[in-house]
Design a protein around this nucleic acid. Structure first.
Length: 425
RNA sequence: GCGAUCGUAGCUCAGUUGGUUAGAGCGCCGGUUUGUGGUACCGGAGGUCGGGGGUUCAAGACCCCUCGAUCGCCCCA
């Protein structure tokens, strides 16, 4: 009989359980809470779109479009693509779903994205992002609000210590074009000093040479002109209003004149929240303003700004979230199993998580509760003596945790409950 | 697409310069003991050492190929 081969998981995908999943869920839950504080509506979007949605908006020559997209033909012969990012799909929906009537529209979402890349630390083929966008707002105040939102999110996740906001402006179209031309001239003049990779960038995406990690490129990149000299008055004023707003809101930031974005659609504000705690993947949140994108998709001229954050990356940075409080209800013997179910139901009705172990004798069930990291064991004894009927054994180390469990259980079972108690020996 | 490192039980790993029937802990299954309560004892199942080829009297160890993982380059959240 031939051995049945178990299908392997797809490279770069993850299946999460336990702490890994709890970290992930905590990041999402925190985002969902904070985005509400800023009045961002949750939107639901398809995971795949017509290939043109991404090809047109991201730029044909970007790596994402040219070699990283999961693109396939459906049975009808249409070219579809699993979304490699959120922004393009949101903009498509803004145009096709009539969302223009709600402008300026503040939306947030999160979910899986797909890029055909070589996996490494903090990088996956199916990965997950948080996303926040403001569509139909040309005011710098929109940029500020998004950055303040991101800043608060990182603070509430407890990771702001190791993460810094780096900020740059790419100017308006006129500034950007003038700067780009000056950069190309500069790099052309020093071709002989650039790495092979940067020579390739020079023809594909010259701005990218600025943040090259190759030490051979640094002298040329560092001596390249900043955008500041090419900024129009309008673009300069815009950037100042953004930075003033951040200062007023108490958001710490650093100017990085070398910061550029990988995708073609960015204008004006560009930013990354970066850390050195994730190996080669330094960016935790990245985004900026993309005033031309919706037009590129055939929509009306619509200014917009947004960011995305890697959920896996944030999950790696946060402290392990505290597990939910679960009380294990253990019947002393078969006789009181139904009584244990009744008590568990009472706990759950009061919002306390309860688990009734169904395997093994009482001792085994207590051991299992300990192993599952439950907070306490409520032992139900077969006795007519009300004083000895319920016994709460704590599994927490410190007294305040024990008090929390005891108070919760007493509250759920009602006043006057006779609850003898003990702790770990 | 390129580079480095690594693949031994379900999991975490030992395995000495190549040398008998490949080990441990945890987990799993069974049993003993205990019996107002989490750490006891005994036993068992489970590995064609990622796969294929080669060197050798002899390969888990050495060589080649292949697949996979990890980390880095590229790119990006």
């Amino acid at each position: 009989m031939a051995k049945i081969e178990t299908p392997r998981p797809i490279r770069g995908t993850q299946s999460m359980l336990g702490e890994e999943q709890e970290r992930f869920a905590h990041v999402v839950a925190t985002f969902d809470r904070v985005r509400r504080l800023y009045g961002f509506q949750r939107v639901e979007l398809p995971v795949f779109e017509s290939t043109a949605v991404f090809a047109r908006s991201l730029g044909e020559s970007t790596d994402v479009v040219s070699k990283e997209m999961y693109t396939f033909e459906d049975r009808g012969g249409d070219s579809l693509t699993l979304r490699p990012e959120f922004t393009a799909g949101i903009c498509r929906a803004y145009i096709t779903e009539g969302w223009q009537q709600f402008a300026p529209l503040k939306v947030a979402t999160h979910g899986p994205l797909f890029r055909y890349e070589r996996p490494q630390k903090g990088r996956f083929r199916q990965f997950h992002q948080l996303d926040a966008e403001i569509i139909g707002a040309s005011e710098p105040g929109a940029d500020v609000e998004l950055l303040v939102l991101a800043d608060q999110l990182l603070k509430e996740l407890g990771v702001s210590e190791g993460v810094t906001l780096t900020l740059n402006t790419l100017g308006d179209a006129a500034s950007r074009d003038a700067w780009r031309a000056a950069l190309i001239a500069h790099f052309e003049a020093h071709r002989d000093q650039l790495s092979e990779e940067s020579l390739d960038r020079l023809s594909r995406n010259p701005l990218r040479i600025l943040d090259s990690k190759d030490p051979r490129d640094r002298p040329v990149a560092d001596s390249a002109p900043d955008i500041d000299a090419y900024l129009t008055d309008e673009a300069r004023g815009f950037f100042e209003k953004v930075t003033d707003g951040l200062n007023a809101a108490g958001v710490a930031w650093e100017r990085n004149a070398r910061l550029v974005r990988g995708l073609d659609y960015y204008r004006h504000t560009a930013f990354e929240f970066i850390t050195d705690r994730l190996g080669a993947q330094g960016t935790v949140v990245g985004g900026g303003r993309y005033d031309g994108l919706i037009e590129n998709l055939g929509g009306p001229v619509t200014p917009a700004v947004g960011w995305a954050a890697g959920i896996e990356r944030l999950a790696m940075l946060i402290d392990a979230p505290r597990a939910d409080m679960i009380i294990s209800v253990v019947p002393d013997n078969l006789e009181v199993e139904d009584e244990a179910q009744r008590i568990a139901a009472q706990l759950r009705a009061s919002g306390i998580s309860a688990d009734v172990a169904f395997r093994g004798n009482a001792k085994k069930r207590v051991e299992l509760a300990k192993k599952r990291k439950h907070r306490g064991v409520l032992i139900v004894r077969a006795t007519s003596d009300q004083t000895g009927k319920l016994y709460l054994q704590h599994l927490d180390e410190n007294q305040s945790d024990r008090d929390e469990v005891r108070t919760a259980v007493l509250l759920a079972l009602g006043p006057g409950t006779n609850l003898s108690g003990g702790g770990p020996r």
